[in-house]
Design a protein around this nucleic acid. Structure first.
Lengths: 123, 123
DNA sequence: CCTAGTGTTATATTTTACTATTACACTATA
DNA sequence: TATAGTGTAATAGTAAAATATAACACTAGG
């Protein structure tokens, strides 16, 4: 896993696992890979991975069973809320950043459309 | 200045000053506040501010004159390039994040439009 | 020439993040 | 009962970021 050196590694691991859960790569009730396995997979220390998981446990997105594993919550409402929260956070962030560069609302939408179009053609 | 504790402070200061330059709050050729003044303004250490400025000097967005001050570059092409770079980076980031959540291109644009609409109504 | 203000750098300390290593507690299975 | 695998936590060391403090070099103006 490639880490952005501007953001704490545990935070990026957390975000990555949230993505796995939201997209259904990890389903409600499904067991996560063990802490040790995840550490190997993402190339980080066990304690760093455990740091990420702890926050996810606190957020009630995963449940921990000592000796058994960590499991994705069965409460799909929580996963839906998590998705909304992450999507909104991203939109808010990009909007604030571009708005702060004096782009109008229309310009923000248009530049995203143009960016997507360019991406499509780059493939 | 409110700092995001997930991102290095010098990096946020750099980004903040780039915004001032791109929006014209700081104009080409204009002198920046002194390092000591900036440190007070943003509530950070002089060395941290100097760290931010050093990167901007290396990027040739500002010019340093020891004993006189730091000045915004007169080359507006560089400022234009910086704007494009920052805008593109933001769009890339939000696109990657939302794409990784399995939103389609249309959904990404639509959710941004809806977000902006909601923002307008919340005021 | 002196002073105030400027940028730049160095040193030391603190804080936070990360790693390496080890060990403990729990669980399931043979 | 023993073993392998699980989660959790502790300790120690390293690195990066941030701060505090001090000092040096340059500039402009009185």
């Amino acid at each position: 896993m490639n880490f952005d050196d501007k953001i704490p590694i545990y935070y990026q691991i957390e975000n990555y696992i949230y993505h796995e859960i939201i997209t259904g790569a990890l389903k409600p009730g499904e067991k996560l890979p063990s802490v040790r396995q995840l550490a190997v997979d993402v190339t980080a220390n066990v304690n760093t991975v455990q740091r990420a998981l702890s926050e996810m446990i606190t957020a009630e997105i995963i449940e921990s069973k000592r000796g058994r594993g960590n499991f994705v919550t069965m409460e799909t409402a929580k996963i839906d809320q998590l998705k909304v929260k992450l999507v909104t956070a991203q939109l808010e962030r990009v909007y604030d950043q571009l708005h702060a560069l004096n782009l109008s609302d229309d310009e923000i939408v248009t530049s995203l459309q143009q960016y997507i179009q360019q991406r499509g053609q780059a493939k």
